[in-house]
Design a protein around this nucleic acid. Structure first.
Lengths: 142, 142
DNA sequence: CCTTGACCTTGAGTGCGCTCAAGGATGTTC
DNA sequence: GAACATCCTTGAGCGCACTCAAGGTCAAGG
C-alpha cells in the first residue's frame, strides 16, 4: 500500500482545487513532485500533510512568500530548523495581535448594537459613542 | 467653532489617505459631503467618527459592500435600525468564528514549534504530528 | 502679481491569491 | 475501438481594495 495518487486525489484530500495545487507548485509551495510515465504528477500522504498545514497557515495570515520560504527551508534539512521556528513564531505574534484586535472589535460591535437598541427604544438618537471600545479605554486610562 | 475641514484634515484625523477617502466616497461610504465655494469637499466631526468606525469594521472583515449598505441605511433614519443591527450581528458571528480559528492556529503553531525543538534535540525527525491541533481533537472526541 | 500648496476629476495601474480557458495528451471502461 | 474522465501546459482574467498619474483649478501669503 504505497498510497500514491494523482492531482485529483490530492485535491479531494486537501479541499483545494487542482488549479490551485498546480499554481502552488509554480509558486514553489510543493516540493519534490514526481511524474508517472504519462507525465502526470504523483503525490503521497506527505503532500497531503504539507498542503493542509500550509492551508491552515495561510488562513491564519501567512503570505504565499512566507509559505514558499518555509517550504524551501523544509527541503534544506535540519540545519534550517531554527529559521523555520523563527518564521512560525513571528506568525504567532501576528496571530496574537489579530486575536486582540478582533476581541476589541467584538466589544465595539456590542456597544454599537446596544446603542442602536437604546436609540430604537427612545426613538431619539442618544449622545454619540466614543470611537474606542470601553475595554481599551479602561486599559489606557485606569 | 463650527469645526469644519477639508479632505486633508479628514485624512489627518482618520489616518486614511486623501485618495482613499475620495475613493470611499465614490463607493458610497461617505454620505452628505458638502462643497465650499471652490468645489472643495467640506467635512465635520461626524465624518471623522464615521470613517474611524468603518475602518475598524473593515479591519475586522467587513467588505466595502457591507460598509456601503450600513452607510446607506444610516442615511435612511431610525426605521433601518433593526437591519443595521442584523448586519452588525452577522459580522459579530464571523468575528467570533475567526477568533476561534486563530486560537486553533496558535495551538498548531505551538505544536509545530515544539516538534521542531524535539527534532533539533534528537537530531532525527520525530513521528509526524497529526494535522489537527490537540485542543480540537480533544473537543471532537473526548 | 506670482508662487506654493491643497484641492479637483478621470482613468489607469498595482498586488495578492487565485481561477479559468484553450487546445491537447493519456488511460480506463464498456 | 470509441467514449469519457483525468490529466497536461501556457497564458489570460478576475475580485478586492486601494493607489497613483496627468492635467488642471483655486486661495492664501509674500
Amino acid at each position: 500500500m504505497s498510497e500514491r495518487f494523482h492531482i485529483g486525489g490530492l485535491a479531494k484530500r486537501t479541499g483545494r482545487s487542482v488549479h490551485t495545487i498546480r499554481w502552488y507548485e509554480t509558486q514553489g509551495l510543493i516540493p519534490r513532485v514526481e511524474r508517472d510515465g504519462g507525465g502526470r504528477r504523483v503525490y503521497e500522504p506527505d503532500h497531503v500533510e504539507h498542503l493542509i498545514f500550509l492551508d491552515r497557515m495561510r488562513r491564519t495570515g501567512m503570505s504565499v512568500a512566507e509559505m514558499r520560504r518555509l517550504t524551501s527551508l523544509g527541503l534544506a534539512g535540519w540545519r534550517t530548523l531554527p529559521e523555520r521556528q523563527a518564521l512560525l513564531l513571528a506568525l504567532r505574534a501576528r496571530v496574537e495581535e489579530r486575536i486582540h484586535e478582533l476581541q476589541a472589535a467584538r466589544t465595539l460591535i456590542d456597544e454599537k448594537v446596544g446603542y442602536y437598541d437604546q436609540w430604537a427604544r427612545q426613538k431619539k438618537r442618544p449622545p454619540p459613542l466614543p470611537a474606542v471600545p470601553t475595554a481599551a479605554r479602561a486599559r489606557a486610562a485606569p
